[in-house]
Deep mutational scan, measured.
Amino acid sequence: VTLFVASYDYEARTEDDLSFHKGEKFQILNSSEGDWWEARSLTTGETGYIPSNYVAPV
């Protein structure tokens, strides 16, 4: 399981994006799509795309 933590807050801009807060942890589901990764929030359980430059490895 690949875990990352949010370095910043992010507000979703499309329905496919995932909003999150600094400190929130994610399981990365797919990182092969470039700068936007499909992730599941371990806080909310929601799945969506997050900007990879807003998160760091745990």
Rank of each mutant, 00 (worst) to 15 (best):
V1S: 13
V1Y: 12
V1E: 14
V1G: 14
T2D: 13
T2R: 12
T2H: 12
T2G: 12
L3M: 10
L3W: 11
L3G: 04
L3Q: 08
F4T: 04
F4Q: 04
F4G: 05
F4W: 15
F4R: 04
F4S: 04
F4I: 05
V5C: 08
V5Y: 08
V5P: 03
V5W: 06
V5G: 03
V5F: 06
A6W: 01
A6V: 03
A6M: 00
S7W: 14
S7H: 13
S7D: 09
Y8I: 09
Y8K: 11
Y8A: 13
Y8S: 09
D9R: 02
D9L: 01
D9H: 05
D9V: 00
D9W: 04
D9M: 04
Y10E: 01
Y10I: 02
Y10F: 09
Y10H: 05
Y10C: 05
E11A: 10
E11V: 13
E11Y: 09
E11M: 10
A12P: 04
A12I: 02
A12N: 05
R13E: 11
R13A: 11
R13Y: 08
R13P: 07
T14V: 06
T14Q: 10
T14M: 11
T14D: 11
T14R: 14
E15N: 12
E15L: 11
D16V: 13
D16P: 04
D16I: 14
D16H: 15
D17F: 15
D17C: 15
D17W: 11
D17T: 15
L18G: 01
L18Q: 01
L18A: 00
L18K: 01
L18C: 03
S19N: 06
S19K: 04
F20I: 06
F20N: 00
F20P: 00
H21R: 14
H21M: 11
H21L: 12
K22R: 10
K22L: 05
K22G: 04
K22V: 10
K22C: 07
K22Q: 08
G23Q: 01
G23P: 00
G23L: 02
G23W: 04
G23Y: 05
G23H: 04
E24G: 01
E24W: 06
E24Q: 06
E24K: 00
K25L: 15
K25G: 05
K25D: 02
K25N: 07
K25R: 11
K25V: 15
K25P: 05
F26N: 00
F26H: 00
F26Q: 01
F26P: 00
F26A: 00
F26G: 01
F26M: 06
Q27F: 13
Q27Y: 13
I28N: 01
I28L: 06
I28V: 09
I28K: 03
I28S: 00
I28T: 01
I28E: 02
I28A: 02
I28Y: 02
L29S: 05
L29G: 03
L29V: 08
N30V: 08
N30M: 07
N30L: 06
N30R: 08
S31G: 09
S31V: 11
S31K: 13
S31Q: 13
S32W: 09
S32Y: 09
S32K: 10
S32H: 10
E33W: 10
E33S: 13
E33Y: 12
E33R: 14
G34I: 10
G34L: 11
G34F: 09
G34W: 09
G34M: 10
G34E: 12
G34Q: 12
D35I: 10
D35S: 09
D35R: 07
D35H: 10
D35E: 12
D35L: 12
D35C: 13
W36Y: 11
W36T: 06
W36G: 02
W36S: 06
W36C: 08
W36A: 05
W36V: 07
W36E: 04
W37R: 01
W37Y: 08
W37E: 01
W37F: 08
W37S: 02
W37A: 02
W37N: 00
W37M: 06
W37V: 05
W37P: 00
E38F: 15
E38I: 15
E38P: 05
E38H: 13
E38V: 15
E38R: 11
A39N: 00
A39F: 02
A39Q: 00
A39I: 03
A39H: 00
A39P: 01
R40M: 12
R40E: 05
R40W: 06
S41M: 05
S41W: 01
L42S: 03
L42Q: 06
L42G: 02
L42A: 05
L42F: 06
T43A: 10
T43Y: 08
T43M: 09
T44I: 00
T44M: 01
G45R: 03
G45F: 07
G45H: 06
E46Y: 09
E46N: 11
E46T: 07
E46M: 14
E46R: 14
E46D: 09
E46I: 10
T47Y: 08
T47W: 08
T47F: 07
T47R: 10
T47N: 05
T47D: 04
T47Q: 09
G48R: 02
G48N: 01
G48P: 00
G48E: 00
Y49I: 09
Y49S: 05
Y49D: 02
Y49M: 14
Y49E: 02
Y49G: 03
I50A: 01
I50M: 02
I50K: 00
I50Y: 00
I50N: 01
I50E: 00
I50T: 01
P51Q: 05
P51G: 03
P51A: 03
S52P: 08
S52E: 03
N53D: 10
N53K: 13
N53E: 10
N53Y: 11
Y54W: 07
Y54P: 04
Y54L: 14
Y54H: 08
Y54Q: 06
Y54E: 03
Y54A: 14
Y54F: 11
V55D: 03
V55E: 03
V55S: 02
V55C: 04
V55M: 09
A56S: 13
A56G: 08
A56Q: 14
A56R: 14
A56F: 13
A56V: 15
P57M: 09
P57T: 06
P57F: 06
P57S: 07
P57Y: 05
P57A: 09
V58W: 10
V58T: 07
V58I: 13
